[in-house]
Amino acid sequence: MKTARRESVAIAALLAAAILFGLWILPAGISHGGPGPGEGLSPRFMPRLATAAMVLALAWGLLSSLTGTRSPRKPREGRQSHIYMPIGGVAICLAFAGVGFALVGFYIGGICMAALLTVLLGERRPWVVIVFPTLLLAAIYLLFELALNVRLPRSGLIPGLPI
């Protein structure tokens, strides 16, 4: 029962977000309003249609959640205490993609990212934590820079080295 209530709240929140989006964010993000001549439908048509469908779907979901008919679910594997790993993983990935790579370049950033992730996932042997990411980035360098001619972001710390 408690999970059903939590679910209803979540759906209600999504529904509110969708309505807000449709009424405020959408018109703000698409300045070109009505269809001019020779334009077929307005640029707002499709997004509006999709938002309407989303609102309807969420409303239906809210209704069925409130009336207790639960949507069919898979049985949960494992316990919630294992959630720290994926959250940690997400945080590491976003940190590097957002800031890390731009700051220290892809190679140094990638080695750190791989090392951190490996440790997060339970690897404790120090030589593995250091050597494996290095080899990984060496492989990436070979494949991307030498074979494919794609230049990954550099840190600019050492001008000569491709790091």
């Binding site: 790579f101 892809f106 990638g110 990212m113 990984l136 991307f144 794609v150 990954l152």
Partner: peptide, 26 residues
């Protein structure tokens, strides 16, 4: 625990390579 970090890092490089853009990685 070794393969998954490898996949994540390789995928980052691949996503970047497409357009030369970190935005794509994000």
């Amino acid at each position: 625990r070794l393969l998954f970090p490898a996949v994540l890092v390789f995928a980052s490089a691949g996503a970047y390579a497409m357009r030369g853009s970190l935005f794509d990685v994000q």
